[in-house]
Design a protein around this nucleic acid. Sequence first.
DNA 1: TGATTGATGTACT
DNA 2: GTACATCAATCAC
Length: 222
Amino acid sequence: MSPPPLPRAFFERSPLDVAPDLIGTLLCRRTPDGELLAVQIVETEAYLGPQDRASHARAGSTARTAPMFGAAGHAYVYRLYGMHWAFNVVARTPEQAAGAVLVRAGLPVAGAERQRARRGRPHDAEARLASGPGRLCQALAITGADSGRDLTGSASLWIEAGPGGTRGDLLVGPRVNVGYAEAWAALPYRFGLAGSPALSRPFAGPTPIDPAESIPGGHHPR
DNA sequence: TGATTGATGTACT
DNA sequence: GTACATCAATCAC
């Protein structure tokens, strides 16, 4: 028995609320041959709508970014640097034009050996198999064919609550490799599970923070 | 019609 | 620490 997929309402909130709440949840994949692959999500980034200079939504809706402008709880998958895939969940309120949460890293919790085989690196530690947006997609066999998929009603790709319901201490910092986004590059829209060995890279600055505290940096658009 | 640019990962020094 | 693979989207003519 496993818990049901996270419901639509979970994703019908600001990406700034959904991104930290996804830390500790399970991203699950049922392959065509029936095998279960899953990771515990340990790192996410929030991307807002067209006003966010770091978001692909900044150019408005295109064939690629259309899922971000559609219903919350769907996948947005795109090709990165011409050779990797990156997986997002659409997160937005009815008032927000677009929004998404990039899943940057996870720790394998089911089908680890199959994930290692998919990565093609037999000697990599488990914590390394999905410790980056491209690695995570390769380990879980996520491709552009999954873009637009409804994660709340799919038998092949979904997100469910993590075991125990404990999220652990959160790390917060600026998003990775968005230096072109001017003032938006410095905002603390990246979230990580403190102490996880599967983070894609370290968080700088004072860590961890108390999850109960508000996000540092003042007032943010939600 | 052509040039630039990335929400990266790997190999190598 | 640096080099580089590789391509759709976007932007500059």
